[in-house]
C-alpha cells in the first residue's frame, strides 16, 4: 500500500485533470462508494459514438480521485461501446500496484461511473471482491 501513494497519485489527487463540468454533456452518471464516502460524477461529450470530451467531479480519498482523474486522460476518442466494456485492468495499470481488497472499490468507482455514463444505465462494480456490502 505504501507503494500506492506515489508522487503521481498525489499529483492527480491535488491537481485533478479534466475536473469540472461540461456545458451540455451528452451523457453523464454519478455514484458513490459508501465505504469511503467517495463521490464521482462523469460527464461526456459524444460525437459519432466517440468521446470528444470528458469532465469529472467529486470528492473522496486520493485513490478514488486520482484513479478517476487518470481515467479521464485515457478515454478521449474512445468508442462508447469500448468504454462500456473496459475491465478493471485499465485502472490497475493507471494507478500501479498494491490496492488492498477493501480499497478496490475506491479505485474502481471512477470506472464504474464512467461505464454507467457510457451505457446509460448503472454499471456493476468492475470487480468481484467480496467487500461490496454497504456499511
Amino acid at each position: 500500500m505504501e507503494d500506492f501513494y506515489k508522487e503521481y497519485i498525489l499529483d492527480h489527487y491535488r491537481n485533478p485533470r479534466n475536473f469540472g463540468h461540461l456545458d451540455a454533456p451528452d451523457a453523464s452518471a454519478e455514484d458513490l462508494n459508501p465505504l469511503c464516502g467517495d463521490e464521482i460524477r462523469m460527464e461526456l461529450q459524444v460525437r459519432d459514438g466517440r468521446v470528444l470530451d470528458v469532465r469529472f467531479s467529486g470528492k473522496g480519498c486520493a485513490i478514488s480521485q486520482a484513479s478517476a482523474s487518470m481515467l479521464t486522460q485515457t478515454i478521449k476518442g474512445e468508442r462508447l461501446e469500448d468504454i462500456a466494456r473496459l475491465s478493471k485492468d485499465v485502472v490497475l495499470e493507471n494507478v500501479g500496484i498494491g490496492i488492498s481488497p477493501t480499497r478496490m472499490k475506491c479505485a474502481m468507482l471512477g470506472l464504474k461511473v464512467l461505464k454507467s455514463a457510457a451505457l446509460g444505465e448503472i454499471a456493476s462494480w468492475p470487480d468481484d471482491d467480496p467487500h461490496t456490502a454497504s456499511v
Binding site: Y5, R14, L35, C36, G37, C61, A62, R103, V135
Partner: peptide
C-alpha cells in the same frame, strides 16, 4: 489536513495501527 481518512487509515495500517475511517454508521451526522 487534506489527507482523506481512508488514505490515512491505509498508511497507518502499514505501521500496524488499526483505526477506522468513514462515516461510522452516522451518515446524517456527518
Amino acid at each position: 489536513s487534506d489527507v482523506h481518512p481512508h488514505d490515512l487509515a491505509s498508511i497507518l495500517d502499514t505501521e500496524g495501527v488499526a483505526i477506522r475511517a468513514g462515516h461510522h454508521c452516522t451518515m446524517p451526522l456527518m
